[in-house]
Structures are given as structure tokens and as C-alpha cells.
Simulated scan of single mutants.
Amino acid sequence: MSGISSSMRGAVVTLAVVVGLALAYVVGTSSAQADEPDPAGPASSETITIRGSGSTSVVPDEVHFDLSVTTRAEGLDDALSRSSAELSTAVDALVDQGVAREDVRTTGAQMRPTYRRVKGQAPEPTGYSVTQSVRVEVALDDAGDAIAAATKDAGRALRVGGIRLAVSDETQATKEARDEAMADSRATAEQYAKASGRRLGRATKIVEPGADGYEGYQAQTLSSADASKAFALYAGEQDLAVQVEVVWELL
């Protein structure tokens, strides 16, 4: 019995030692992990918000313009028919000039009654007025001929307006302007960080309030008689601008 008791006591002691070592390993590992610094660094609760701006030059390669027709008649059907006929004549002339039909889209149609007004008397209905309009997009080099063709055989009811120079693809120019805007924001933020004895951290938020984009050139509305005369459009260079608002960490 005493031999068995001694053996059991040895086993118990051995087991206790093993368990103790295991616990020490777990505690030591947890402690080491808790002390290990975050590779990303501590999160900063202090930030600074800086706006940056950037721009790049673009050369317009398209012209957008509106064609509109307003007709009046005693009956609505008659006014609508005349307006549609006038506008169709202009659009067909554009297509004959080489403008794709998918580059001509309807932008508005308005029908309203007209009245004769005499002071002291109730307004007297006289008929209807109908206005229809389309938006046309053409290459810059073809714009002058396209406008002249659209107005050549049109009646006096046709108007050309909203003439605007545009850039067909602003993707690359916008990227360059954004890069410049971010660099501008970072440079200013670094200046403030240095002045306050801090280091600049990462950008935690970036907002583009709305790229200014290329505003383009817009001309006044022309009558069909004026627009039918040959005229030239010169693109030149314009600026495409972007603004960003960036929140930076201060470390």
C-alpha cells in the first residue's frame, strides 16, 4: 500500500508541474501579444481638414447646340403638326450632313393655349402655341457646316441656341486634376502639422464636393437667318478643375 501511495504521489506531482508549465506558457504568450505594438500605429483622434484644388488644360473637340421650333395655330393639332414638320426638316438636314441620329435627342416639348388680352376684358382664346426642341452633339470640325445645314431650309420659327464647346472624354484630364488636388491638400496639411510640432498621418476621408469640370463656351441664341450664315468656332484651351476636401490624421 505504501508503495502504491508513493507512486501516486509522484504522478500527482508530475501532473502539477506539467499543468503549471502550460499555464505559464499561456499567460506569457497572452502577455506578449498584448504588449506587441499595432503595425498600423495607434489611431489618432486629432485630425485636420484641408481643401485642395487642381486643374489641367483640355482642348474641346465637340460642339453641343439646341434647335427649337415654336409655332402657333388656332387648333392644337395644326400647331403640333407645323412644329414637328419644321423640326423634322432641320433634323433631316443634319443627318444628310453626316450627323448620326443617335446624336440628336429630344429635350423638350411644350403646348399651351394663347390668348388675346384687352384691358378691361376677359382674355379671349386665340389658339395654341407649341415648342419642340432637340439637343445636337457634333464634332468641332463639323459644327459650322451642321448648323448651317440645319437652318438653311428652315422657317423663321427655328432657333439655334445653347452653343457650347465640350470635351468628349474628360477621364484622363480629370485624373490629372484629382492628383494635383490631392497633392495640394497634402502639402498644406504637412505645413500645418509641422508648424504645430506634429507629424501628418494618413487621409481618413476624401470628399469631392463636385468637380468643377469644363464649363465650356456658350453662345447666344441665333435665329435661323443668322445661323445659316457660315461661321467658325475656335476651341482654344480651357481648364478642367477639381476640388477635394481631405481629412488628415495628426500624429
Results as ranks from 00 to 15, higher is better:
residue 180 E to H: 09
residue 227 A to Q: 06
residue 232 A to Y: 03
residue 128 Y to R: 00
residue 13 V to Y: 10
residue 208 E to A: 11
residue 234 Y to I: 07
residue 45 S to R: 07
residue 124 E to L: 10
residue 81 S to Y: 11
residue 70 T to M: 14
residue 65 F to A: 05
residue 44 S to T: 13
residue 181 A to R: 12
residue 196 S to R: 11
residue 14 T to G: 11
residue 156 R to N: 14
residue 123 P to F: 06
residue 151 T to K: 13
residue 212 D to K: 07
residue 136 V to K: 13
residue 3 G to T: 12
residue 65 F to S: 07
residue 191 Q to E: 15
residue 100 A to P: 13
residue 21 L to S: 04
residue 50 I to F: 04
residue 164 R to C: 01
residue 36 E to T: 12
residue 128 Y to D: 00
residue 4 I to M: 08
residue 240 L to S: 04
residue 120 G to Q: 10
residue 99 V to N: 08
residue 39 P to K: 00
residue 26 V to I: 12
residue 23 L to Q: 12
residue 3 G to N: 13
residue 131 T to A: 02
residue 196 S to E: 08
residue 102 E to P: 12
residue 245 E to T: 09
residue 142 D to C: 06
residue 75 G to S: 14
residue 31 S to L: 14
residue 44 S to K: 01
residue 28 G to W: 10
residue 236 G to C: 02
residue 95 V to Q: 12
residue 56 T to I: 08
residue 72 R to G: 03
residue 194 K to C: 00
residue 41 G to M: 02
residue 162 G to D: 12
residue 142 D to Y: 04
residue 173 A to K: 02
residue 51 R to V: 15
residue 198 R to Q: 15
residue 33 Q to I: 15
residue 209 P to L: 07
residue 68 S to K: 00
residue 187 A to Y: 01
residue 184 D to M: 15
residue 49 T to F: 05
residue 70 T to I: 08
residue 188 T to I: 14
residue 223 S to E: 01
residue 179 D to N: 07
residue 53 S to C: 07
residue 108 G to H: 14
residue 245 E to I: 08
residue 225 A to I: 09
residue 219 A to F: 00
residue 183 A to K: 14
residue 153 D to A: 15
residue 90 A to V: 08
residue 165 L to Q: 02
residue 206 I to F: 00
residue 28 G to E: 05
residue 175 K to C: 03
residue 79 A to G: 15
residue 42 P to V: 15
residue 189 A to L: 01
residue 76 L to C: 04
residue 199 R to D: 14
residue 60 P to W: 01
residue 151 T to C: 15
residue 190 E to D: 14
residue 190 E to C: 04
residue 247 V to F: 10
residue 110 Q to C: 05
residue 156 R to I: 06
residue 8 M to F: 13
residue 144 G to I: 08
residue 214 Y to I: 02
residue 47 T to Q: 09
